[in-house]
């Protein structure tokens, strides 16, 4: 194995640049080093002006998402040795506006998540039920939604989704998977409220089942599956609404 590998990093300084440009750095190629380790090596001594997000460095916080050789990746789990002899191209996560260097603007994503009401919705509250009551759930009931609860909000799915890239109004994979996580939760009674949000034109119908979101998800959430199932659920609810008399809906 060679001693070092080149990182080709996208730089963008908003007060100086009108568009991004490349800057190359050579970093040590150690077999256990990730792309994030390489970036921190650059930041620590080579070029302290490089900006990027990271936190847990173990694939659970979702902060370090970037585009590595054209693919959305968590840089803390992407090994430099897999790209030898390099160079490794590192760009900010695609489909998001760039704030600076490898840092993207999260505000659209953060605005979309609460729209699907990602909390347990029940008609009973502490006026009718004791405040400390526990809603019991069997292991089978947990399994029904567990996969969709594994999302770490890393936004790799939004970066991979061509529909989101072309139409930023699309509510997106993670939001819909999150809605499905609550819809499938036995403790929740909020299906109707989430349906009203997701049946809008910027909801599930924009998805054309490309499937890239599922392919890039580091937590194997399978948002594409959640979206297709949601479409079927919404379609059947619409049919029911057409067929049943008003009172029964």
């Amino acid at each position: 194995m060679a001693d070092s590998i080149q990182l080709r990093v996208s730089r963008f300084r908003p007060d100086e640049d009108s568009e991004p440009h490349w800057q190359e750095y050579d970093v040590p190629l150690r077999k256990e080093w990730t792309v994030l380790d390489g970036l921190n090596h650059v930041k620590n001594g080579v070029d302290t002006t490089l900006s990027f997000r990271w936190s847990c460095r173990m694939g659970i916080c979702g902060s370090c998402g970037m585009t590595v050789d054209g693919e959305p990746k968590l840089t803390c789990g992407t090994f430099l040795s897999d790209y030898a002899p390099g160079p490794v191209t590192i760009e900010p996560l695609s489909n998001f506006p760039v704030v600076r260097d490898l840092v993207v603007d999260l505000s659209d994503f953060m605005a979309k998540l609460p729209r699907v009401k990602p909390w347990i919705i029940r008609e009973d509250d502490d006026r009718t039920v004791f405040p400390d009551v526990e809603y019991l759930q069997t292991p089978e009931e947990l399994d029904a939604y567990k996969q969709f609860s594994m999302c770490i909000n890393c936004m790799l799915c939004y970066s991979a989704c061509p529909v989101y890239g072309l139409d930023p109004e699309f509510i997106g994979p993670a939001a819909i998977a999150l809605a499905e996580r609550y819809d499938l939760d036995s403790r929740d009674r909020g299906n109707r409220q989430r349906l009203d949000v997701l049946v809008e034109h910027d909801g599930v119908w924009g998805c054309t089942f490309v499937g890239e979101c599922t392919r890039v998800c580091p937590q194997h959430v399978d948002p594409a599956a959640a979206i297709q199932r949601y479409k079927l659920k919404a379609a059947l609810a619409t049919v029911k609404a057409f067929l049943l008399p008003r009172g029964a809906r």
Binding site: D196, H201, W205, K231, A235, A237, T238, F242
Partner: peptide, 16 residues
Amino acid sequence: MTRRRVEPLVWLMFSA
């Protein structure tokens, strides 16, 4: 749903 929606029905026909 208070408004009649066509898109879900079109999607069902698309799937069929």
